[in-house]
Design a protein around this nucleic acid. Sequence first.
DNA 1: CCGAATCGTCAAAAGCTCGTAAACAAGCGA
DNA 2: TCGCTTGTTTACGAGCTTTTGACGATTCGG
Lengths: 226, 226
Amino acid sequence: MTSILIVDDDAPMREFVRRNLEAREFTVHQASNGLEALAMVRHEQPDLVILDIMMPHLDGYETCRQLRQFSDVPVVVLTAMGDERDIVLALDCGADDCLTKPFGVEELLARLRSVLRRSQSRDSVAAREAIEFRDLRVDVDANRAWLRDEELNLTRTEFSVLRTYAVNLNKTVPHQMVLSAVWGPGYETETHYIRIYVSRLRNKIESEDETPYFATEHGLGYRLGD
Amino acid sequence: MTSILIVDDDAPMREFVRRNLEAREFTVHQASNGLEALAMVRHEQPDLVILDIMMPHLDGYETCRQLRQFSDVPVVVLTAMGDERDIVLALDCGADDCLTKPFGVEELLARLRSVLRRSQSRDSVAAREAIEFRDLRVDVDANRAWLRDEELNLTRTEFSVLRTYAVNLNKTVPHQMVLSAVWGPGYETETHYIRIYVSRLRNKIESEDETPYFATEHGLGYRLGD
DNA sequence: CCGAATCGTCAAAAGCTCGTAAACAAGCGA
DNA sequence: TCGCTTGTTTACGAGCTTTTGACGATTCGG
């Protein structure tokens, strides 16, 4: 779950934000001043920080600057209605967005979504890894499959069928699910096709005298895996 | 140099923004409607897009949504003073920030800096060097490609196709992914374009009596790499 | 144990995809 | 405007893939 740290010396304000965030399934942490906030970022590693500017001891600007010394966590700053210079200053301290009080809850949430979307897309650049079972490896991303280091030469439909079973590893997949996933809606009754393609896949994947990769559940469907 | 595309049907507004951006050493491109903007993003690849909401034909919301089909370029939206719902809508269409007219130039610049800072840190995380495979080197940022120290003379579309395969090195890329990446949404069925361009790229890249750079996966797509 | 339903396999026909050439159209700079 | 580059459209043979239809094997319920 996405966790958010809200930093504000004004307790009612914190409460207000907390209630609205928790209603949207965020986990919320709180801090009432800059020093506390820095410690919590270190220890809780929130996914996002909401930071009020007006705070005693360590104000929002300075907190943000120090935060950036050691963390890339997205920061959304709250400023009091007023000078454009406050906004410029906050953004130049390293904040990702800036919202002027009083603000609407919906706008706050939309800005959080936007900032989180950006930071998450950065994190998830790493591709999904392949699905593996015994000597078989299926790379759904790359549209390729291997058996013991040797790449399988599969046709489009063969791969599409294999992928359907692979993403449902160890689960018996009903025929009609495969049919509508591979051949599209309207083919739910053509179970014939599946028999042929599972047969071809078995020829390419399984060898004699070893337990089969595909299990047949009579009347139900096939299952790749245990 | 950082290049910015400003999209607004109001010419004086575009001029105002252009002057201020050029004074800060940005390169500025302009478009006066959504369709033009989509084409320019494809061909000029700006580092950031400033997008007005109120436009004839294709409004800012729809432009942004379509942009996100094929590009991660940062988008800052301009809305007329008014409803909070406009802001929420714009951000949820995939925009990175949203500014309400009338706005101060300093705030605009600060928000651009903030958005650019975030997107550039992401790019540098990915260590965007050239992509290399055997004797081929593709510089995705500079729009250039080399074969053994000799630069390839590629047209825009040729390069765009090559880049799509290069960033998916060793993956079989489905035709429709290439089509929507290069020609845009709505071209998903024009597979003959790909055949022709891959054919031309092979002519410029591959030589006789060596293993091909592009592998054909019949019915699936092409793959650059192993 | 029998019959009906389901499964496994084969091979050929039908259909689709690929590679390429060539012609045409659109855009652009000189 | 002309001439060149680039993008788009059309066409077609070769090769591959999917579908079709057939038939025997297996499983399950009664």
